Simulated scan of single mutants.
Amino acid sequence: MQLATIFLGFIIFGISENIKGPAIPRIQFDFKLDEGQLGTLLSLNALGYLIACSFTAVLVRKWGIKAVTIISFASMIISGVFIYVSHTYPLFASSYFLMYIGNGMLEIGLAILGARIFVKNTGTMMNLSHFFYGFSSTLAPLIATGLMSVTLFGWTLDWRGMYLVMLSLSILPILSALRSTFPGDDLPNEDRISLKVLIRDPALWLLVLILSFGVVSELAVGGWLVNFLEKAYAWDTVKASGMLSVFFLFFSLARLLLGPVTDKIGFNLSLIIFSGFSGLCTFAALLGGEKFAFLFAAAGIGIAMIYPTVMAFIAKRYPTGSDTAITFTVTLMGLGSVIGNYAIGAIIDGVKHLYGAETSTGLLRGLQAGYGFIGLCAIICALSGCFLYRYLKVRKELI
């Protein structure tokens, strides 16, 4: 039941994060949002995610991981109901914000569960559990696209009904969590590493940089790839959503097959190699034009490995302080996501106006610049990994 909760949890997490790809153009049309406003919306949602990360560890210590996990799933079901009935922008933005509160709680909860349960072959098991995130992310855009056109009793689900149906699947991991018992809640406080001790470790700050830039690069694809392909290359929604699904297919296969590689070559080297590969693929796709668009999908192979490898790193380096270390790094990562999503929207708008806001060239150059920032984040992630490798190698603490 523990494994079922973790695996189902990552499936729901992948669904809630990535059904927005094909829905965003319709949300943008319904509420008449420009790219800057869209970036602000995604940033505000990332802020909700950040807020949830900041208080989830406190709730875990007070109520236990089981209760917090169930609450996070329940909040996503409730947000799906509110999204369904939202016909004004303030209600929709609030509902979306609530969904990301649930996502933030769920991410911390699942990371803590993984760190407590996967004490052997940590890299392999972390990547395997995150494979289910990639698996559901692969299917989510296609299922979302199909559901939006489904008609029941003369009524079309559209994006609101699609969100309600998909988020209601959270009932499944709630049922498995209710039947589970989870370890670690009984660890005495005096045996835990304090936050004061952790923040003195430069390695933790480098992990924050790696995780922040890696996750901005990862999550931005779900929000911007379909938009980019539709507007830059005039692809239809089905074709563009198909490319997003191929990205997550590579993403999920990498986590399924390459987890043992991280255990074999070490977490430090893995972070450098995989993030660098993702950044190079993204820039090659932009420079090569439409015929190299498949490299956008290939970038998923590299970026898939960053988050679970960092979580495995934390579990190994801070075995009695993983709860605190995970909360600290993921909270700061959330702050990076807020800034990153806003930056992408701002870059697109700024470059678009530079080349002519109403021209097709201006739109193309703006979208290319915004997506280039996604690739740049992956490169910065790799460079941060190099600094981490050097710092730990000198101290003979490579993992």
Rank of each mutant, 00 (worst) to 15 (best):
S137E: 02
T40F: 00
A254E: 10
M148R: 04
I374P: 00
L207C: 00
S16A: 13
D191H: 13
Y389W: 13
D349I: 04
S252F: 13
I15Y: 01
S360C: 05
T262S: 15
E397M: 13
L225A: 02
I6G: 06
S384Y: 04
F292G: 03
G350S: 15
Y307M: 05
L258W: 01
D158I: 12
A382D: 09
Q2K: 11
L167T: 09
K196S: 06
V68R: 07
R365S: 11
I174H: 01
L271M: 13
G21K: 02
F13H: 11
A234F: 08
S43T: 14
S278K: 02
I78C: 11
S43K: 08
L367M: 13
F328N: 00
L229D: 12
E35F: 10
F250N: 05
L280S: 00
A144R: 01
L42F: 09
I174P: 14
F274G: 01
L256Y: 06
N121G: 04
W155A: 00
A284K: 00
T181A: 04
A369G: 14
G375E: 11
T262R: 14
T262M: 14
G21W: 10
C53T: 14
C53W: 01
Q368K: 10
G161A: 09
Y89W: 11
G134F: 10
G372P: 03
V394T: 09
F55H: 06
G340F: 12
G114L: 08
G350N: 11
T122Q: 09
L269T: 03
G366Q: 03
G80M: 06
L209C: 08
L354R: 14
F250W: 12
I117V: 06
L335A: 07
N45C: 15
P25W: 03
N189Q: 14
S322L: 01
V226G: 13
R390H: 07
